[in-house]
Protein backbone atom coordinates (compact mmCIF):
# COMPACT_ATOMS: atom_id res chain seq x y z
CA UNK A 1 0.00 0.00 0.00
CA UNK A 2 1.06 3.63 -0.38
CA UNK A 3 2.22 5.40 2.77
CA UNK A 4 2.18 9.18 3.10
CA UNK A 5 5.62 9.84 4.61
CA UNK A 6 6.39 12.89 6.78
CA UNK A 7 10.24 13.15 6.94
CA UNK A 8 10.94 16.05 9.31
CA UNK A 9 14.17 18.10 9.27
CA UNK A 10 16.71 15.65 10.73
CA UNK A 11 15.75 12.82 8.37
CA UNK A 12 16.97 14.99 5.52
CA UNK A 13 20.31 15.79 7.14
CA UNK A 14 22.09 13.79 9.84
CA UNK A 15 19.58 10.89 9.84
CA UNK A 16 19.54 10.22 6.09
CA UNK A 17 20.65 6.63 6.79
CA UNK A 18 17.47 6.08 8.81
CA UNK A 19 15.34 7.29 5.89
CA UNK A 20 17.18 5.25 3.27
CA UNK A 21 17.05 2.04 5.24
CA UNK A 22 13.36 2.66 6.02
CA UNK A 23 12.57 3.25 2.32
CA UNK A 24 14.43 0.06 1.37
CA UNK A 25 12.61 -1.95 4.02
CA UNK A 26 9.19 -0.56 3.05
CA UNK A 27 9.78 -1.44 -0.54
CA UNK A 28 11.03 -4.95 0.30
CA UNK A 29 7.78 -5.42 2.22
CA UNK A 30 5.76 -4.28 -0.79
CA UNK A 31 4.90 -0.78 0.37
CA UNK A 32 5.94 2.53 -1.07
CA UNK A 33 6.76 5.62 0.97
CA UNK A 34 5.54 8.78 -0.74
CA UNK A 35 6.91 11.98 0.71
CA UNK A 36 4.31 14.63 1.45
CA UNK A 37 4.30 17.34 -1.20
CA UNK A 38 3.86 20.12 1.32
CA UNK A 39 5.41 19.73 4.77
CA UNK A 40 6.97 22.05 7.28
CA UNK A 41 8.78 21.75 10.60
CA UNK A 42 6.82 19.50 12.98
CA UNK A 43 7.11 22.16 15.71
CA UNK A 44 9.28 20.09 18.04
CA UNK A 45 9.10 20.09 20.93
CA UNK A 46 5.37 20.25 21.71
CA UNK A 47 4.46 23.37 23.63
CA UNK A 48 3.05 22.56 27.03
CA UNK A 49 1.69 25.93 28.17
CA UNK A 50 -2.09 26.31 28.25
CA UNK A 51 -2.31 29.68 26.54
CA UNK A 52 0.20 28.96 23.74
CA UNK A 53 -1.83 27.94 20.68
CA UNK A 54 0.63 29.60 18.35
CA UNK A 55 3.15 26.75 18.49
CA UNK A 56 0.48 24.22 17.48
CA UNK A 57 0.14 25.89 14.09
CA UNK A 58 3.16 24.20 12.50
CA UNK A 59 2.12 20.62 13.32
CA UNK A 60 -1.51 21.41 12.49
CA UNK A 61 -0.49 22.61 9.02
CA UNK A 62 1.20 19.26 8.39
CA UNK A 63 -2.03 17.46 9.32
CA UNK A 64 -3.98 19.74 6.97
CA UNK A 65 -1.51 19.09 4.11
CA UNK A 66 -2.02 15.37 4.60
CA UNK A 67 -5.78 15.88 4.39
CA UNK A 68 -5.22 17.92 1.23
CA UNK A 69 -3.46 14.93 -0.31
CA UNK A 70 -6.55 12.89 0.50
CA UNK A 71 -4.74 10.52 2.81
CA UNK A 72 -5.96 9.43 6.24
CA UNK A 73 -2.59 8.59 7.71
CA UNK A 74 0.89 10.13 8.09
CA UNK A 75 3.85 7.75 8.70
CA UNK A 76 6.86 9.26 10.50
CA UNK A 77 10.32 7.87 11.25
CA UNK A 78 11.50 10.39 13.86
CA UNK A 79 10.18 9.81 17.38
CA UNK A 80 10.02 13.53 18.17
CA UNK A 81 7.99 14.36 15.03
CA UNK A 82 5.59 11.53 15.83
CA UNK A 83 5.23 12.76 19.45
CA UNK A 84 4.73 16.43 18.53
CA UNK A 85 2.22 15.78 15.74
CA UNK A 86 0.28 13.38 17.97
CA UNK A 87 0.17 15.84 20.87
CA UNK A 88 -1.28 18.55 18.64
CA UNK A 89 -3.74 16.10 17.06
CA UNK A 90 -4.77 15.01 20.58
CA UNK A 91 -5.18 18.61 21.84
CA UNK A 92 -7.35 19.82 18.96
CA UNK A 93 -9.53 16.74 19.23
CA UNK A 94 -9.92 17.28 23.00
CA UNK A 95 -10.68 20.99 22.77
CA UNK A 96 -12.86 22.05 19.84
CA UNK A 97 -12.54 25.76 20.73
CA UNK A 98 -8.72 25.61 20.25
CA UNK A 99 -9.27 23.90 16.88
CA UNK A 100 -11.73 26.58 15.91
CA UNK A 101 -9.30 29.38 16.82
CA UNK A 102 -6.50 27.70 14.88
CA UNK A 103 -8.70 27.00 11.88
CA UNK A 104 -9.95 30.60 11.84
CA UNK A 105 -6.35 31.86 12.13
CA UNK A 106 -5.13 29.81 9.15
CA UNK A 107 -6.37 31.77 6.12
CA UNK A 108 -4.42 30.04 3.29
CA UNK A 109 -4.93 26.44 4.51
CA UNK A 110 -8.26 24.60 4.71
CA UNK A 111 -9.69 23.73 8.08
CA UNK A 112 -8.42 20.60 9.77
CA UNK A 113 -11.24 18.01 9.62
CA UNK A 114 -9.59 15.55 12.01
CA UNK A 115 -9.53 12.74 9.44
CA UNK A 116 -5.76 12.06 9.73
CA UNK A 117 -3.94 9.81 12.21
CA UNK A 118 -0.20 9.91 12.90
CA UNK A 119 1.65 6.57 12.87
CA UNK A 120 5.28 5.90 13.70
CA UNK A 121 6.99 3.41 11.34
CA UNK A 122 7.41 0.92 14.22
CA UNK A 123 3.62 0.99 14.75
CA UNK A 124 3.20 0.39 11.03
CA UNK A 125 5.44 -2.71 11.18
CA UNK A 126 3.53 -4.05 14.20
CA UNK A 127 -0.08 -3.22 13.25
CA UNK A 128 -0.10 -3.36 9.45
CA UNK A 129 2.75 -5.70 8.50
CA UNK A 130 2.66 -7.90 11.61
CA UNK A 131 5.59 -9.77 13.16
CA UNK A 132 4.58 -13.13 11.58
CA UNK A 133 4.71 -11.82 8.03
CA UNK A 134 7.93 -9.95 8.83
CA UNK A 135 9.54 -13.13 10.22
CA UNK A 136 8.63 -14.98 7.02
CA UNK A 137 10.40 -12.32 4.93
CA UNK A 138 13.63 -12.54 6.94
CA UNK A 139 16.17 -14.37 4.76
CA UNK A 140 19.29 -13.53 6.73
CA UNK A 141 18.27 -14.07 10.41
CA UNK A 142 20.57 -12.23 12.81
CA UNK A 143 21.48 -15.50 14.56
CA UNK A 144 23.52 -15.09 17.72
CA UNK A 145 23.34 -11.28 17.70
CA UNK A 146 22.40 -9.98 21.18
CA UNK A 147 20.49 -6.69 20.82
CA UNK A 148 19.44 -4.33 23.62
CA UNK A 149 16.26 -2.38 22.72
CA UNK A 150 16.26 1.32 23.74
CA UNK A 151 12.97 3.29 23.49
CA UNK A 152 13.76 6.68 25.15
CA UNK A 153 10.63 8.69 26.06
CA UNK A 154 9.01 10.23 22.99
CA UNK A 155 7.39 6.93 21.88
CA UNK A 156 5.94 6.21 25.34
CA UNK A 157 5.18 9.49 27.12
CA UNK A 158 2.95 11.38 27.77
CA UNK A 159 0.39 8.63 28.07
CA UNK A 160 -2.05 10.16 25.55
CA UNK A 161 0.42 9.58 22.69
CA UNK A 162 2.15 6.37 23.83
CA UNK A 163 2.48 3.68 21.13
CA UNK A 164 3.05 0.85 23.64
CA UNK A 165 2.82 0.06 27.40
CA UNK A 166 4.80 2.91 28.97
CA UNK A 167 6.31 0.74 31.73
CA UNK A 168 6.89 -2.53 29.83
CA UNK A 169 7.13 -1.77 26.07
CA UNK A 170 7.52 -4.86 23.88
CA UNK A 171 7.41 -3.54 20.35
CA UNK A 172 11.20 -3.57 19.79
CA UNK A 173 11.65 -6.87 21.65
CA UNK A 174 9.08 -8.45 19.31
CA UNK A 175 10.87 -6.95 16.33
CA UNK A 176 14.25 -8.31 17.49
CA UNK A 177 12.76 -11.79 17.93
CA UNK A 178 11.20 -11.55 14.46
CA UNK A 179 14.71 -10.81 13.12
CA UNK A 180 15.99 -13.99 14.78
CA UNK A 181 18.26 -12.13 17.20
CA UNK A 182 18.37 -12.37 21.01
CA UNK A 183 16.76 -9.70 23.20
CA UNK A 184 18.78 -8.25 26.08
CA UNK A 185 16.15 -6.81 28.42
CA UNK A 186 17.27 -3.82 30.49
CA UNK A 187 15.80 -1.39 33.02
CA UNK A 188 17.11 1.74 31.26
CA UNK A 189 15.13 1.25 28.08
CA UNK A 190 12.50 3.88 29.02
CA UNK A 191 14.85 6.48 30.58
CA UNK A 192 15.63 9.72 28.76
CA UNK A 193 18.89 9.93 26.73
CA UNK A 194 19.39 13.62 27.49
CA UNK A 195 17.48 14.87 24.42
CA UNK A 196 18.36 18.44 23.39
CA UNK A 197 20.45 18.90 26.52
CA UNK A 198 23.23 17.42 24.42
CA UNK A 199 23.97 20.85 23.05
CA UNK A 200 24.72 22.63 26.33
CA UNK A 201 25.34 19.69 28.66
CA UNK A 202 27.79 17.51 26.75
CA UNK A 203 29.31 15.72 29.82
CA UNK A 204 25.88 15.02 31.30
CA UNK A 205 24.72 13.40 28.06
CA UNK A 206 27.96 11.42 27.85
CA UNK A 207 27.36 10.13 31.38
CA UNK A 208 23.81 9.17 30.37
CA UNK A 209 25.17 7.31 27.34
CA UNK A 210 27.77 5.56 29.49
CA UNK A 211 25.17 4.44 32.07
CA UNK A 212 22.89 3.01 29.40
CA UNK A 213 25.67 1.39 27.33
CA UNK A 214 27.60 -0.04 30.32
CA UNK A 215 24.48 -1.99 31.27
CA UNK A 216 24.38 -3.42 27.75
CA UNK A 217 28.11 -4.34 27.85
CA UNK A 218 27.72 -6.06 31.25
CA UNK A 219 24.92 -8.20 29.79
CA UNK A 220 27.26 -8.89 26.80
CA UNK A 221 24.87 -7.27 24.35
CA UNK A 222 26.43 -6.71 20.94
CA UNK A 223 24.60 -3.49 20.03
CA UNK A 224 21.80 -1.14 21.03
CA UNK A 225 18.74 -0.80 18.79
CA UNK A 226 16.79 2.48 18.81
CA UNK A 227 14.57 4.56 16.53
CA UNK A 228 15.15 8.24 17.36
CA UNK A 229 17.94 10.19 15.61
CA UNK A 230 18.59 12.33 18.73
CA UNK A 231 18.89 9.28 20.99
CA UNK A 232 21.24 7.80 18.36
CA UNK A 233 23.43 10.90 18.42
CA UNK A 234 23.45 11.11 22.20
CA UNK A 235 24.34 7.45 22.85
CA UNK A 236 26.56 6.94 19.78
CA UNK A 237 28.42 10.25 19.50
CA UNK A 238 28.34 11.38 23.14
CA UNK A 239 29.03 7.75 24.12
CA UNK A 240 32.16 7.83 21.95
CA UNK A 241 33.22 11.07 23.65
CA UNK A 242 32.62 9.39 27.01
CA UNK A 243 35.63 7.18 26.18
CA UNK A 244 37.79 10.28 26.76
CA UNK A 245 36.07 11.11 30.05
CA UNK A 246 36.15 7.63 31.56
CA UNK A 247 39.28 5.55 30.86
CA UNK A 248 38.64 1.92 30.05
CA UNK A 249 35.17 2.67 28.77
CA UNK A 250 34.44 1.70 25.16
CA UNK A 251 31.17 2.50 23.46
CA UNK A 252 29.31 -0.36 21.83
CA UNK A 253 27.68 0.22 18.43
CA UNK A 254 24.23 1.80 18.11
CA UNK A 255 21.93 1.05 15.15
CA UNK A 256 18.52 2.04 13.85
CA UNK A 257 15.97 -0.77 13.78
CA UNK A 258 15.49 -0.10 10.07
CA UNK A 259 19.19 -0.80 9.37
CA UNK A 260 18.99 -4.14 11.19
CA UNK A 261 15.71 -4.94 9.43
CA UNK A 262 17.27 -4.16 6.03
CA UNK A 263 20.20 -6.51 6.72
CA UNK A 264 17.86 -9.25 7.97
CA UNK A 265 15.76 -8.93 4.83
CA UNK A 266 19.01 -9.48 2.90
CA UNK A 267 18.79 -6.14 1.11
CA UNK A 268 21.81 -4.62 -0.56
CA UNK A 269 23.05 -1.21 0.53
CA UNK A 270 25.64 0.47 2.76
CA UNK A 271 22.98 1.75 5.26
CA UNK A 272 25.09 4.79 6.07
CA UNK A 273 27.32 3.24 8.71
CA UNK A 274 29.76 6.05 7.98
CA UNK A 275 27.48 8.37 9.95
CA UNK A 276 28.00 6.30 13.10
CA UNK A 277 30.68 7.33 15.62
CA UNK A 278 31.14 3.59 16.35
CA UNK A 279 30.98 1.71 13.07
CA UNK A 280 28.90 -1.46 13.57
CA UNK A 281 30.29 -3.15 10.42
CA UNK A 282 33.16 -5.12 12.09
CA UNK A 283 30.73 -6.54 14.63
CA UNK A 284 28.11 -7.44 12.01
CA UNK A 285 30.76 -9.16 9.91
CA UNK A 286 32.13 -11.03 12.90
CA UNK A 287 28.60 -12.25 13.63
CA UNK A 288 28.30 -13.36 10.02
CA UNK A 289 25.23 -11.33 9.26
CA UNK A 290 27.10 -9.07 6.89
CA UNK A 291 29.31 -10.54 4.12
CA UNK A 292 33.00 -9.75 4.77
CA UNK A 293 33.51 -6.95 2.25
CA UNK A 294 37.17 -6.12 1.66
CA UNK A 295 38.33 -2.65 2.37
CA UNK A 296 35.59 -1.89 4.80
CA UNK A 297 36.95 0.26 7.59
Amino acid sequence: MELLYYPGCTLKTSAVNLEESAFAVAEALGHSMIEMEEWNCCGVSASLTEDDLMHHLAPLRNLVHAEDQGMDRIVTLCDMCSNTLKQTDYRVREREDDLKTLNDFMDQENDYRMTVSVQHFLEFLRDDVGWKTLKKKVVNPLKGVRIMPYYGCMLLRPREVAIDDAEEPRIMADLIKALGAEVVDNPYKIECCGSYKTIEEKEMTSRRAKTISTYAVERDADLIMLSCPLCKYNIDQRGKEAELLFDGYSQIPVMYYTQLLAIALGLEGDWGFGAHAVDPTPLLEEKGVLPISEGST
Partner: peptide, 13 residues
Protein backbone atom coordinates in the same frame (compact mmCIF):
# COMPACT_ATOMS: atom_id res chain seq x y z
CA UNK B 1 9.48 6.10 41.32
CA UNK B 2 10.19 2.57 40.01
CA UNK B 3 11.89 -0.75 40.68
CA UNK B 4 14.55 -1.85 38.19
CA UNK B 5 15.49 -5.53 37.82
CA UNK B 6 18.64 -7.13 36.49
CA UNK B 7 17.14 -9.75 34.13
CA UNK B 8 20.06 -12.13 34.78
CA UNK B 9 20.32 -12.26 38.57
CA UNK B 10 16.75 -10.94 39.19
CA UNK B 11 18.22 -8.68 41.88
CA UNK B 12 16.35 -5.37 42.22
CA UNK B 13 17.62 -1.78 42.21
Amino acid sequence: SEIKEDPETHDLT
